[in-house]
Amino acid sequence: MREPTLWILHILAGIIILIFLGIHMGIMHLDTILTSLGVGYKNPLSWSSVLIRNKALFFTITYILLLGAALYHGFYGLRNILFELSLGKSAQKAVNWLLFFVGLFLFIYGGYAAIAAYVI
């Protein structure tokens, strides 16, 4: 009975990513267009803009949200692809646990970086 829950979470994570990664992509890669429209800021990768984002609670929270949603969405998608290679039941279990632990590790690591950048 787990599958529909995992699937709907995949979709919800997709919507979260669409919103926040959309903002992230806009800030990072449409900066000249956005600044000419009066939003965003120039040179988003310079150290000074990194510092501004590090200290803004909005970015810290959305980074962690985006990190979790993207890890879930990406690893569920990878799991889809792997499962469709006719995996046996035990291999399916192994994939589930492997992706879960790798995902958890990356979430803790990335979450730590986001919080540390805010606190330091």
Binding site: R2, E3, P4, L6, W7, N80, F83, E84, Q92
Partner: peptide, 10 residues
């Protein structure tokens, strides 16, 4: 509601 159900359809 199993892995080989409709969730394999994209």
């Amino acid at each position: 509601c199993v892995p080989e159900g409709p969730w394999r359809c994209h």
